[in-house]
Structures are given as structure tokens and as C-alpha cells.
Design a protein around this nucleic acid. Structure first.
Lengths: 341, 341
DNA sequence: CTGTTAGCGCCTTCAA
DNA sequence: TTGAAGGCGCTAACAG
């Protein structure tokens, strides 16, 4: 069986190291894993043998023997163009990487935007190529969640689902939109504003309804249902929606935006309508997107602890790998105060 | 050895399937891999057994036996959160995924921005967790390339390196910046412009010098060295550089921009200076970024075949896995004509 | 503390 | 066309 081709000269295995060090394979293995059943002298001997032979542990053999791949799959269902487009995911990924450091587990990003990619990803998971899955975008495609459950792997969801299905199956981490919205509303209330409008994202989005709930909890009838409008998440939506709003309700003195991009559009519309921010109208965004800091005026906004969310997701995954049951962790948002409110 | 915990009831293995189907494990294995040494009847029997038992192939056992993980690592050294507003990588990744479909190999993205992440990624590669590596951003960190070479894995570089080190070791795929630049220059020349300026990216970037070379090859002395300026890749750089340029050289009638974002800045500067595009000054961008189509006027620009680059990278990786030697593939850019030139 | 022995789950010669 | 046997590289239970 001439497997080796093109001068790949049969890899050095632990057997070679053991022979070179004059110990058994078991001892070599123990030394390599820094077991305290092994003399320091022996460990050194094995290390020397490793250096001399150029041995590198083979992950496949190890995975088979231990029953662990020592990887955590990070499932991304958004098209990657958007992943790279939206710093949200980047920051969560950083958190995941940070949360995994020192554990010996490697985060492995698996893209699954198309159906075929999704099938491949799931097959790979079912085959136990990873030890756990962190699902970054669990909103879309609830059938995917069922399929994930079917793999029997530990799964961590990043984001709150409407009525928490799979509650006892998956771990979940999310930031509390309701409480975040309360922070925004409180800021506006403290400022003495009483003719508040909300320009929100799509109505069918769970984050949208949570945010609206938070607003109304704090503001009561200072926020008029007539002045609650829905639009797309982006600046264009915020612009047109706000333009219509100020036309219909010229006395509006505060705008709570469903996202920072919406808020940017709102700022533009207010400027066009001759309103000063924050003197005439205060604006509070949501997300603490990079554009919030450079907006003019700089945007007061509600920040999600995205990096921390990633860290917590990593920890939840590791805990489940270690045998712990599923858990739900809720993180707090906080208000970032800038000039717009 | 009570490995199973929390009701994980010992996974179904090929042995179970074989027993259930009344064949040997060898036959079951052959049937599962659709070998033509197996009767259709037997295959069906095995398939039935699979369905009844719920068997899923274990990737670790298979990887150990075959010597393949059936994954291709995609190395990303840019911090993911700095990549926003750069869809380049997303499109290449899509190409890689497409190029891998049907091969049975799964692309696995490994982020390695920090040093520690890099070390982890390399360790994972050395341990043969993947069968090949596609390096998306080989410009930064040449030492990384040496380390990659050290793994002995097939490696594909996406992008041209200055004087092609590792030429006989790595495969490479890139688009020809020089020829792409010639296309842009030719467009300007065909338009009869003869007082051409170039607003390029950073001078130390290889793409920058290649593009400048292409421009001058075509335009000769119609492009004045005094009118070749360097700035950052973004719109702000393009704006200020172009503003200074038109002030010093009011007769400029064409601007070749080093990127679309630079071009956008140039458009703004020209507008501010009261120049009409394309009547007074034509502008040609580079990259065919999404913003090029929506610019005003829409931007004529040079497009890299990014998706195709990814596809080719995937093919190169698969070929090397199959034993082929390293190869270099150069793709052609093309001109996307819009209103700005 | 170390060696022996027996797998982990799958594939692949070699015989039949 | 199938089965038996051995091995991929590593770890873990059990003696010593």
C-alpha cells in the first residue's frame, strides 16, 4: 500500500518517539499530555525525542481515541458577504475565540447560507467533526434548529428566540432588548421629552417588538402609538420614515431608532426638515455600530455586549462538552452617551 | 469505562449496520462508499440497515483510516471586524465553497488575526486537521508562509506576492493587476484624454505598483509623474488627494483611481471643484465594489473575478490533495463600463 | 511510575 | 462478490 506519494516520507508517530526515548508508547503519550503520572526526567526524555524526530501529534488518531475533535463549529447562516459587512459577527467571533483560548478547542467557522451548504454543514456535524456548535444567527430557518437538535451535539444559540423552543435542549445567550430599550427611553424621559416617536425595524422581528415594549414600559403615553413606525434596518428606511413622521407630527421632540443605521437616516431627515439635534429633537440609536461614533452629531445609542456574548457562548459550549446541561444566559445592554441625546 | 454520560447511548457504528444487514463490516463499508464490488441487492440491504439503525458515519474513524479529514482550511488573517465594507473576502469564500461542492471536502474558515490565534491555527494544521490550506491574505506576515510550508500541507495562496517566494511549494491564484490597469488606461486613452492623473493606494502595496505600471505602459507621457499621488484606500483619502490634485493641476481631464472607494472620494472632490464627470474629467475605479454601481455618476471600474478566484483556489487545493504539484493560475480582470468614463 | 493490552470506527489488502 | 484480519495514531484500563 504505497500511500506516500511525492516524497511524503511517512509521518513520525508516537511510536517513533517512544522508541527514540526508550519508553513505551503509553508512557510517551502520557508525557506528551503532561500527565503527572510521569517523572520529570521521563518527560524531558520524551520531549528530546520529540525534538529529534520532529514529531507532531496527529489530530485524527487523538480524536478517535479520546472521542473529541477539540473543535467547536461556529455556524453562520448569513451570506458571508454580510458577515464581513456587519461588524456584529466579527465582534462575536472575537469573543468566541477569546472564550475558547486555553481550552485547547479551536473555533471553526462553517458557512451555511445556501441549502446545499447547510446540508454539508449538518452532515459534517452529525459525523462528529466538531464537539459542539455555536449558532450565531438562529433567527432564520427554524427547521435548521430541529436538524441541529438531531445531531445530538451540544448547541449554543446566540440570540433570543420568540418563545424559546428547544429550551431544555440548547443553551442560549443573548442581550436583553427590553432592558436595553428601557435605557434608551429613560434617557429621553430624563431629558424631559414627552412627544416621543419610534422608528423601528421590521415589525416581524423579535428584537423590534422587544425594543418597542421597553420603550412603552418607560414612557407610557409619552410615546404615541401613531408615532411608532416600522421600516427597514438601514439608513434609507430611517430617512424616509422620519421625513414622513415629522411632516405628520411636527411637534415630535425625540426619536428612538431601531438601529444606528435607521438613526443615521433620521438625523439626515431632521436636518432636511430644519430641526436641530439634540436641541429640538433628541435621537437615540441602537447597536453602537461603528457609524454611531462618527455620525454628526455623534449618536447616543444602546450597545450590546457582543464580545462578551461570544465569550459566554464559548463557555456554554465548553461546559456542555464537559457534560453540563443547557443553560440560558442573559446579558445587559448599556447606554453609550454621545451628543445626539 | 463509562464514557457515555447524560443519556448519550453509545453511537451506532458500522458494526451495528453490518450485523443488522447480515453482512461483514468490510462489505458494509464498501456498500456505504458505493464501491462497485458490491451487489445492488447488498447495497440496498445495507441502506435499509442504515435507515433502521440511524447510523451516521463517524468522521474521525474515517479520517484515521483514509488519512484524509475531507476538509480544506481557509485561513483568514485579517481581523474579521476590520473587514467590514470589504466584500472581497466574502466573494472569494463563496467561490471556494462552490469550487469544493461535489468533492466531499468541506471548507472550514480559520481566523488567525492575533498571534495566539495564528499559533493555534498552525498547530491544528500541523496535526493534520485539514487536508489543505487556502490562504486568503498572504500579503501580511511572510513568516507565516514559512510556517505554513513547514506543515507539509498543500497550500494555495490567493494573491500575488512580490517576487514569488515559495514558488515551487505553494500554488497561487491571482488576477493580473497590470493587465487590469491597462484596461482602465486604455479606456481613458480611447476617450482621447491626455492629461491623466492617478490617485493610488499606499505606495508600498504590490497591487499599487502593478496598477501604476499598467497605467504608464498604456498612457506613456499622457500620464504625468507629478500627477501620480498615493493615499489610503478609502474615500477620505481619495477626496483630499483629488482636491489637492485639481488645485495644482486644473487641466486634468482623467483620474485613474486605485480603488472604488478612492474613486468615490475623487467624485466628491471633483463635484466640489465644479468639474463635471465625465464631461470635464473621466474617472475609472478599481475593484467593482458594490458602491461603484450606486455612485453618482455610476463608476466605470476594473473588476477582479473574485468568485472565480475562489473557485480556482479550491480546484488547486483539491488537485494538490490528489497529488498534483503546485501551480500558478492568473486570471484576467475586465472593465465594467458605467457612466463615469 | 511504567509497560502491556485492548480498543476508538473505519478502510483495505488478501484469500476465498 | 464477500469475509477475515490487520492497521491508521493515539489513549486508557489494568497490572505490576
Amino acid at each position: 500500500m504505497p500511500r506516500a506519494r511525492r516524497g511524503a516520507p511517512r509521518a513520525v508517530t508516537i511510536t517513533d518517539v517512544a522508541r527514540e526515548a526508550g519508553v513505551s508508547r503509553a508512557t510517551a503519550s502520557r508525557a506528551l499530555n503532561d500527565s503527572d503520572l510521569v517523572t520529570d526526567a521521563t518527560k524531558r526524555a520524551v520531549q528530546d525525542a520529540v525534538a529529534r524526530t520532529g514529531f507532531v501529534m496527529n489530530a485524527r488518531g487523538r480524536a478517535l481515541a479520546t472521542g473529541r475533535a477539540e473543535t467547536v463549529g461556529v455556524l453562520v447562516t448569513e451570506p458571508l458577504d454580510e458577515l464581513f459587512d456587519d461588524p456584529t459577527y466579527g465582534r462575536m467571533l472575537r469573543g468566541i475565540a477569546e472564550g475558547l483560548t486555553g481550552s485547547g478547542f479551536l473555533p471553526v467557522i462553517v458557512q451555511a447560507s445556501s441549502d446545499s451548504e447547510r446540508a454539508l454543514a449538518l452532515r459534517s456535524f452529525s459525523r462528529r467533526s466538531v464537539d459542539a456548535v455555536v449558532h450565531l444567527t438562529p433567527y432564520r430557518g427554524t427547521d435548521l434548529l430541529d436538524l441541529l437538535a438531531g445531531t445530538g451535539l451540544p448547541v449554543v444559540l446566540c440570540g433570543q428566540l420568540v418563545d424559546s423552543p428547544h429550551e431544555g435542549t440548547f443553551s442560549t445567550v443573548y442581550s436583553d432588548d427590553v432592558r436595553g430599550a428601557r435605557l434608551a427611553a429613560q434617557r429621553v424621559a430624563d431629558d424631559g421629552r414627552s412627544r416621543v416617536a419610534a422608528v423601528l425595524g421590521p415589525a416581524d422581528n423579535p428584537a423590534t417588538s422587544d425594543r418597542l415594549r421597553g420603550y412603552t414600559e418607560v414612557l407610557g403615553d409619552r410615546i404615541d402609538p401613531d408615532r411608532v413606525v416600522h421600516t427597514g434596518w438601514d439608513a434609507a428606511g430611517g430617512l424616509s420614515a422620519t421625513a414622513r413622521l415629522v411632516e405628520r407630527h411636527p411637534d415630535v421632540d425625540a426619536i428612538l431608532a431601531g438601529s444606528d443605521r435607521i438613526a443615521l437616516g433620521a438625523l439626515a431627515a431632521l436636518r432636511a426638515a430644519g430641526r436641530r439635534v439634540p436641541e429640538d429633537v433628541v435621537v437615540v440609536g441602537f447597536d453602537d455600530h461603528a457609524i454611531a461614533a462618527t455620525a454628526s452629531p455623534p449618536l447616543t445609542t444602546v450597545a450590546q455586549p457582543l464580545v462578551e456574548e461570544g465569550q459566554v457562548a464559548a463557555r456554554l459550549a465548553l461546559d456542555m462538552i464537559a457534560g453540563a446541561g443547557p443553560r440560558t444566559e442573559v446579558l445587559e445592554m448599556h447606554l453609550v452617551e454621545r451628543a445626539s441625546a
